[in-house]
Amino acid sequence: MEIIRSKEFTADRAWGAKNIASMGGITTRLHWTDMPYKWHINNGEEVFVVLDGVVQMKYKVGGQEISTILEVGDIFYASVGTEHVAYPQGAARVLVVEAEGSV
C-alpha cells in the first residue's frame, strides 16, 4: 500500500520516474520533466496522463506531424506504432502506463 502525492514528486533529471506498479508486463510510472523527450514508438500501446503542468504532444499520422496541447486531466493514447514526442511547457508530471521495458 502506498499513497503518492504526484504534485510533490520531482526527479534529479528530465523524465526521471517513480515506478508505481508492474502488473502482468505492464508498468505504471510517474514521471517528472521540464525537457522534451525524443521521437519514439513504444513497444505496444501507451497511456499518457497529464497530472500537473501542460504538455505539447506531437505525433504522426500517415507521415503527417500533428500537435496538440494536453492539460491537467488530459489523456493521450498511443496505439501500436504511433510515433510521438512530448514537449512539456515548463515542469510537468505525467503518469505513463506501457509495456514493461518500452522506450
Rank of each mutant, 00 (worst) to 15 (best):
I69E: 13
F48T: 03
R5T: 13
V85S: 00
E2M: 12
A21H: 08
G90M: 04
I4Q: 05
F76Q: 01
D52C: 02
I75R: 02
G53D: 09
V96P: 00
A92S: 14
G62T: 10
H84A: 10
Y77N: 07
S67M: 12
G44T: 07
L51T: 05
V96L: 10
V103H: 08
G63R: 03
G73D: 06
N19G: 11
V50C: 07
E98P: 04
E65P: 03
R29A: 10
V97E: 04
A21I: 09
I66C: 09
Q64L: 13
N43C: 07
G25D: 10
G81N: 15
G62F: 10
G25L: 08
V49N: 08
E71W: 00
G63I: 04
Y87F: 15
G24Q: 10
Q64T: 15
A14V: 00
V50L: 05
S22Y: 04
H40N: 08
E46P: 01
R93W: 09
K7E: 15
T27G: 10
K7I: 07
V94P: 00
S102P: 01
A17G: 02
D12T: 12
Q64D: 14
I20D: 03
V55P: 00
T28E: 09
S22M: 06
K7T: 14
R93P: 06
R13M: 11
I20R: 00
G44Q: 06
A99Y: 00
V50Q: 05
A99W: 00
T33A: 11
E45L: 09
Y87I: 06
I3Q: 13
V54Y: 02
I20G: 03
G44L: 03
V103L: 13
L95Q: 07
I4P: 03
M23F: 12
Q64R: 15
T10H: 12
G24N: 14
Y87A: 04
D34N: 15
G63L: 11
M35H: 14
E45G: 10
H40V: 07
E71M: 04
I4H: 11
V61Q: 14
R13K: 15
M23S: 12
V55C: 06
Y59C: 02
A14E: 04
V49C: 12
N19D: 13
K7C: 07
G90Y: 01
W39I: 11
I66Y: 11
W32R: 00
A14R: 01
V85H: 01
K38C: 05
E83P: 05
S22G: 08
D74L: 06
I20S: 05
Q64F: 11
L70S: 04
A92E: 01
K60Y: 09
D52P: 00
F48N: 02
G25Q: 09
Q56C: 10
